[in-house]
Design a protein around this nucleic acid. Sequence first.
DNA 1: ACTTGTTAGCTATGTTATATAACTATTATG
DNA 2: CATAATAGTTATATAACATAGCTAACAAGT
Lengths: 157, 157
Amino acid sequence: MAKATKAAAQAVAENGNLDTALRGLVGYSMKRATNMLQADASRVLDGYGLRITTFSALAVICDHPDVTQSQIAAALNMERSNTVLIIDALEQAGLIGRHRVPTDRRSYALRATLEGMKTRDAALKALAAHEDDMLRNLDQEERATLMALMGKIAPRS
Amino acid sequence: MAKATKAAAQAVAENGNLDTALRGLVGYSMKRATNMLQADASRVLDGYGLRITTFSALAVICDHPDVTQSQIAAALNMERSNTVLIIDALEQAGLIGRHRVPTDRRSYALRATLEGMKTRDAALKALAAHEDDMLRNLDQEERATLMALMGKIAPRS
DNA sequence: ACTTGTTAGCTATGTTATATAACTATTATG
DNA sequence: CATAATAGTTATATAACATAGCTAACAAGT
């Protein structure tokens, strides 16, 4: 055990937590859980040459061929400007293609390549397996409850 | 409604979601909820001259006088190196003080100033109020369940 | 006491995610 | 046709997070 000042060391000895007050905040506790899940997801996706954002965009494109960058931004709750480099990366990796739309020359119709579809499927499967492990202490009903409760969180009224 | 390619536009018309597959991942859904809470928390804390990380560190210091930077890093699940600038910011804002420890000249005993205590109390109160609003669709039992379920998520086995 | 290993804080650096403003080309609207 | 809105882009900034390496100080074993 590390040397520590008295009061803090005592708190550590008691329950190992110095952040008791913060744990009462849902945002704080959720951030910690999210960080754990995201860090693991990043490591998994790295094996497929993807980051979390590029994987997310790829998944949307696979499920919705001919989607536009603006639609992806809206779906993933990000700024349009930030989609550019993400789509660039997917295109350069040969996972998707930008196709011009005859009826609107401003936008691109994004479509996954065969490799893109395969990569998505494999990555999604790997992610699900890792999540399943990290959620091993929750049964199916508890997982459903967790998702439902998170879905009830709303923007400021 | 924005002009969109056919298939994607249809999906949007149906349920407004292009990310159905991703929503099945707990990590993805939790990230979305977390982002919402964190963005709001950042705005709140900005009013107190704090960021999420500086507020978190301040809260730990207030609750555990004479805590060290390493202990804060461990408590907040961050790297020691990243605590330095955070503690610097709190010190320069006059919210905490670095005090030398006679028994160990390597470490600092961090203590909040009176203003630090006041700032923390006010910020925490404001954060709790904002969370209470964003969680208005969950009753007390549901909030407790949410916290309990998040706490069951574990690192990879 | 002296070497060895560890700890605390610090510095530098890099990446990822996110946000904003401003620009061009194109399309929609009054 | 003039004006407004939209799609994509560029540039830029910041927060959070991570890694490697460094110095000073302490701890432990011989």
